[in-house]
Amino acid sequence: MPEITTDPPRLDVRGLTRRFGAFSAVDDITFSVPVGGSLGIVGESGSGKTTVARLVTGLDTPTSGTLTIDGHPRTPPRGKAQRLARARQVQIVFQDPLQSLDPRLSARQALRETLHLHYPGTDRPARIGELLDQVQLSARAADARPRDLSGGQRQRVAIARALAVRPRILVLDEAVAALDVSIQAQILNLLADIREQSALTYLFITHDLGVVRSVTDDIIVMRHGRIVESGATDAILSRPSTPYAQLLLASVPGPGWDPQGALEAHRQA
């Protein structure tokens, strides 16, 4: 595990709010993540967690509140150079890489295009080789187009493309939700290894408390746009203090899991 520092935080969010008319998708939330840290943001669909991801990445603009990276405010960019600089701060990996990968480009071509955009004139073949090794993607898979790859391979390509610009923060928005359990484990182990080898900070967005144990230090649990519980990952996974967090944890399939009981608990929550 990389050494974690807290002054200043890699990511610091204070009073972040995003309203759409009278509806608050995110309502006055505050959290911070240290350099090399990993925070899970957990909640069911509609809890506001994906809106947080969009605000952090700059895909959306907050109604109020502040967001800083390494002590510097994250403000709207002016011009192409500033947009690219912001993109190099924060990268995002989505649930469905088919929606974000160009279907015409192989993994190798996608990485070459990304590097050309951000670092024109660099030794791209060497860097591409490093990235492919980092995400454990074979040469054969690297030369295939997205439609010819498995779900796990496509997600490795998406991760490699995000890492290409050496971001400070990697946002993972339900990045393993569409994968089989065995492939989920492979991608989570890969992410844990990448984090251990670098000072990369993770913001892991998920509806499933069961997938965050291996890749996060802390968790915040969101419901209706607000934080209802926060703390160390191990503490919340073993002793959730709020009924909503208890419900989320009870909904994770395991030995003796009762789906009907989980549904009834959801109705009563």
Rank of each mutant, 00 (worst) to 15 (best):
T201D: 09
R74Y: 10
V176K: 01
D143A: 11
Y244D: 01
L115K: 06
E130F: 09
G256Q: 13
G40N: 06
Q186I: 14
R10E: 08
D7R: 08
I236K: 02
H207Y: 09
L67T: 05
I187N: 03
R14H: 06
P77S: 12
L200Y: 05
V52W: 05
L16F: 00
L149G: 05
S150V: 07
L191S: 08
P167E: 03
S45L: 08
T66N: 01
T122C: 12
V165C: 04
P73R: 02
A178K: 04
G21I: 07
R195H: 13
G231C: 04
T57Q: 05
P253K: 10
L203Y: 04
H116F: 13
I194C: 09
R168V: 06
H224E: 13
V212G: 10
G231A: 03
Q260I: 11
T17M: 04
Q134K: 09
L137Y: 08
V252E: 01
D218C: 04
Y119W: 12
L188M: 04
D173M: 08
K49R: 12
H118I: 10
L55Y: 00
S251M: 01
G225A: 07
G21S: 14
D143H: 15
F31G: 00
D123L: 12
P62I: 00
D193Q: 12
Q109E: 15
G15F: 00
D234W: 04
Q95G: 15
G121W: 11
A144C: 15
L59A: 13
D148L: 15
G231Y: 02
Q136T: 14
G129K: 12
G210T: 07
L188G: 11
N189E: 13
S47W: 02
F94T: 06
H116M: 11
L101C: 13
E3V: 12
A250P: 00
L163W: 10
L101N: 14
L247G: 02
V211F: 11
P253G: 09
P255K: 01
A164K: 08
L149Y: 06
I92Q: 14
V212M: 03
A269Q: 15
T206A: 11
T75I: 11
L163T: 11
A126W: 11
S64P: 01
S214T: 15
P240I: 04
A232P: 03
Q184E: 07
D217R: 04
S100G: 08
I227L: 02
A107Q: 05
D193I: 07
T57G: 06
L190Q: 10
A81F: 05
S138F: 05
